[in-house]
């Protein structure tokens, strides 16, 4: 990150499942205004949307910070939810602990974290039961 870093902060509402994705849509707009390529915008916004959905489903909401400079876009998602007991297991495609009401909306396929990893160049997860979760994703420009 250089001195020219732009920082955007979003609060992700944990109560309203239907509005989930607002931060991702805003980021998509901002990146478009900054002239970022459509493919990078697509990767960043999908990864961020999955993160938002996860925070709504599992953690009662959280915070999203997006840092943009000339070389990369960094997304940091922070929540104070129950944490992930087994990160390796959670990273497997198809593994899900989402409740039935969430599945009926088409989520909970166990693709959230795998998609976040798939669409970003680096992803780090810091989490422990009872201590919440912080995820840092980087997309190189």
């Amino acid at each position: 990150m250089s001195e020219e870093t732009l920082c955007f902060h979003f609060d992700v509402d944990g109560d309203d499942f239907t509005s989930a994705g607002q931060a991702s849509v805003q980021v998509k707009k901002l990146l478009r205004e900054l002239g970022v390529s459509p493919e990078v915008i697509r990767r960043v916004s999908i990864a961020m949307y999955e993160g938002e959905i996860n925070m709504v489903i599992h953690a009662g909401g959280g915070k999203a910070d997006v840092l943009v400079d000339e070389t990369s876009i960094v997304i940091i998602l922070t929540d104070e939810g129950p944490g992930i007991p087994n990160i390796k297991q959670a990273m497997q495609e198809g593994y899900s602990t989402a409740p039935d009401n969430v599945r009926s909306l088409g989520f909970g396929a166990g693709m959230g974290l795998p998609n976040m990893k798939r669409y970003t160049d680096h992803m780090e997860i810091e989490s422990a039961p009872g201590k919440g979760t912080t995820i840092k994703m980087t997309v190189e420009l």
């Binding site: 499942f17 239907t18 493919e39 909306l105 088409g106 396929a109 998609n115």
Partner: peptide, 23 residues
């Protein structure tokens, strides 16, 4: 399954589904 679709669908696709919720 929305996350599945986000992981696999490509830009410019016609996405065929029976889901109609806001997400």
């Amino acid at each position: 399954l929305l996350s599945w679709v986000m992981g696999r669908a490509s830009e410019g696709d016609a996405w065929v589904t029976i889901m109609t919720n806001i997400n």
